[in-house]
Design a protein around this nucleic acid. Sequence first.
RNA 1: GGGGUAGUAGUUCAACUGGAUAGAAUGACGGAUUUCGGCUCCGUUGGUUGGGGGUUCGAAUCCUCCCUACCUCACCA
Length: 593
Amino acid sequence: MKELYHKLSKELSKYFQNKYNISLNLFDFQLTRKEFDGDITLVVYPILKYIKLNPQVISKDIGEYLINSSSMISSYNIISGFLNFTISNNYYIKILNEIIHNDDYGLKKIDNNSKTIIVEFSSPNTNKPLHLGHIRNNLLGDSVAKILEANGNKVVKTQIINDRGIHICKSMVSWELYGNGDTPEKLNIKGDKFVGDFYVLFEKKYRLEINRLIKKGHSEEYAKNKSPILLKAKEMLSKWEIGEKEVISLWNKMNKWVYKGFDITYKKLGITFDSNYYESMTYLLGKKIIEKGINKNVFFRKDDGSVWIDLKSEGLDEKLLLRSDGTSVYMTQDLGTAVQRYNDNPSLSGMVYTVGNEQDYHFKVLFLILKKLGFVWADSLHHLSYGMVDLPDGKMKSREGNIVDADELINKMKNTAKEISKKLGKLDGLSVSEKNNLYDTIGLGALKYYILKVDPKKRILFDPEKSIDFSGNTGPFIQYTYARIRSIIRNSSENFDKPITKPNFNFRETNLIKHLLLFPELITQSSKLLSPSLIANYLYELVKLFNSFYQNVNILGEKNEQTRKMRIILTKITARNIKKSCGLLGIKVPEKM
RNA sequence: GGGGUAGUAGUUCAACUGGAUAGAAUGACGGAUUUCGGCUCCGUUGGUUGGGGGUUCGAAUCCUCCCUACCUCACCA
């Protein structure tokens, strides 16, 4: 479609150059609204600013010109300032004959000139299991990575694992006190759950101790800071920082349990990473960068020894970079990580951070600091910010146990898929393992589509009780339509060696064709905006258009050979576009369902 | 208090980034089809786009002031 706009736009520029001696580049084509005749529309108002004529007159002028000079346009009509063109059947036929043989239609190739982009997502803490919020993060990050790849970029998917800090020490202390030497293997529990349970236990004991101290007459602040169990955790953190052997070995042991658990969850979600970064490995580099920044006078040191940056001239405030005791903060680590990645990867041309919008300010500051430090690549960093996932009774709070666990949710989705499929009596002819595969595909498809179809920056309301619909604007509906289309294609024995020449299109067919042709610009647009929700919208619209088309024509039984071939071509391209679009969202499509 | 994001049918979401009469799904009601594939299709119903003002041929979209919700402004990560 864009190609077409571009060609017509060029024609018009030439025309205006010759006739009015004005060079204009603002020929803004768009799809015609379906209530009006025509396929594409030129809005002529912008032109009137440069050429003072009645819109009717100038529209007629342009219309007549294009109809004579371009074989792509077969007719036009004018409604106030909108000039609607009808695209000729010949042009559609030409395009269809071309793209039916081009399986990579719309995708860009990855070659030696491709740019490398790091997409960071997930970024878990190692003291608790993944939850619904992580799922949104993972799905977004993974999908954006796929979109960037479809745009011809080399993508490195990475996660930064927050493996150090007081929260991990809490789990460690708790396990030492109450663990009785148990292990996940012994109790047959997923490692991340196992460690997470000890974190929860810690918080419980901690609260009990606070209450006890307050009852004894201490202030709340005193109680919070002097609780014995907390002191133990703090002690453990400082032992960790000086590298005490036993602590490090416990830390390693428990982290390994957690990673094993994470791996299971990632596998279930169908998500992989190309590399991992650990905060424990980059925070030292961060400190070095701070030192350099002080020498360059980008940062300054306060009397108590803490290090800051002054961003008041940018409309922000002062930001802490190093505590007075010299230890690092979040920002320190992130500076280190960013620099580390560019060091590791000299050809790197951009990074995407998939992190919740509660950290918008943090990333604004991070990018600004990197720029002030003189890193030219700071401009190519992007924060993919997304909204929180809310439950019907409010925000998820892990401290209050009000969370939706990732594993449980995934299992629930698969079970729901199973129940519904059984109730509808589908899948009767399939083997047990085929069926189980399908339940996974459908359940996950529902979950992924449900989350990705929403604009990332908006919050999502998730009602676990209502679960997820399997009809309407949903993943399974798309998967089902795909399976039905594949069935049609299996039943056709048409070959396309000889191109089609002269069918006429009805309006359902042209609507479908136009939508099919939007696919290439869909990819480039969404890569700019990094928005899988655009793709989800495209997909659903495509499925609806196909169903409407399918309902009103007989595809395989059509007598006229040319028309039949054309319809099968449309069916095939539809299948292809559905599969590719789903691929960009990480949704599998079944051949049979 | 400063900064940020959002507010669209009863509900969940769209609106090609300033274009025509703001669209789907879901719910309710009515109809078509019973065809390769059953979850298909077509209607009806439902809106002061949070509110006021402004910018222009034209605003859900841009500016401004209010209202509401959430986030953030930590020597937490």
